[in-house]
């Protein structure tokens, strides 16, 4: 039984077995499944079918997945999750900076896939409604946007201006990976410079202040070579 408003997901992938497996996994979890074999076909289908989310393989035979993302972003805000092999961190970062929303490293499990899909869809919905919460909670942490106060187990923690901005940015994209470049732009604007060397240090400070064990974090996750993710599920 499929309802009319179930989200449509378009998979652009040239490998038949992967498309088949995604079809089973996604339809099984209540998503409408569409597929495309090449980049060109994918772009055409996005225009005609208007999917709610796109799963895009980076290594396509005709167009580079990165190129597809770039072309797509000129006219569409549809969330894009990219698929790529391990060891291609640079490609992932490029695609993310070009406008992709998240990524999955092959091989991946269904659990991981569905989590990413949920986050991306939720984020898109939030952007559409533009509703502003007065506060944000995850785990034992509460952020009060009005007073700009941060509490761990309801005990206030003092953050510096930059640490707070960092936290806000991560909350804004909660659940999604945020690249280093993206964070720098959000905090210092387009003209960031030397600060890039310090980003990791700010992140470490933030983690040490808010996490129980900074060497085994629960929320502020580092995706080596790609960026950071605020894990909220």
């Amino acid at each position: 039984m499929k309802s009319e408003n179930e989200p449509t997901i378009l998979v652009i992938e040239d490998e038949v077995p992967i498309r088949r497996f995604l079809k089973v996994a996604l339809t099984d979890h209540g998503y409408a499944f569409k597929e495309a074999q090449t980049g060109q076909e994918g772009i055409a289908k996005i225009a005609s079918d208007r999917p709610d989310l796109v799963i895009l393989d980076l290594g396509l035979p005709d167009l580079d997945g990165l190129e597809v993302t770039r072309q797509l972003r000129e006219w569409s805000d549809v969330p894009v999750i990219i698929l790529s092999a391990r060891g291609h961190e640079k490609d992932k970062v490029e695609a993310l900076d070009a406008g992709a929303d998240d990524y999955l490293t092959k091989p991946f499990g269904v659990h991981e896939l569905l989590a990413r899909v949920r986050v991306a869809l939720r984020h898109a919905a939030k952007l559409a409604t533009r509703q502003e919460d007065p506060e944000y909670r995850f785990g034992n942490i509460r952020v009060d946007f009005g007073t700009r106060c941060v509490f761990v187990d309801e005990k206030e923690v003092g953050l510096t201006r930059i640490e707070y901005k960092l936290l806000l940015t991560l909350i804004k994209y909660a659940g999604k990976v945020v690249t280093q470049k993206h964070l720098l732009k959000e905090i210092w604007g387009e003209e960031y410079g030397e600060e890039s060397n310090y980003l990791r240090v700010y992140m470490a400070h933030l983690r040490r202040k808010l996490e129980q064990d900074s060497a085994h974090p629960k929320y502020f996750i580092t995706e080596a070579g790609v960026g950071y993710r605020l894990k909220v599920e």
């Binding site: 060397n197 990791r200 240090v201 992140m203 470490a204 983690r207 040490r208 900074s214 060497a215 085994h216 974090p217 996750i221 580092t222 995706e223 080596a224 894990k231």
Partner: peptide, 13 residues
């Protein structure tokens, strides 16, 4: 430069 706790944390997560 990478804070050592971040490297350990990244591996664990």
């Amino acid at each position: 430069l990478h804070p050592v706790d971040e490297v350990i944390g990244a591996a664990l997560s």
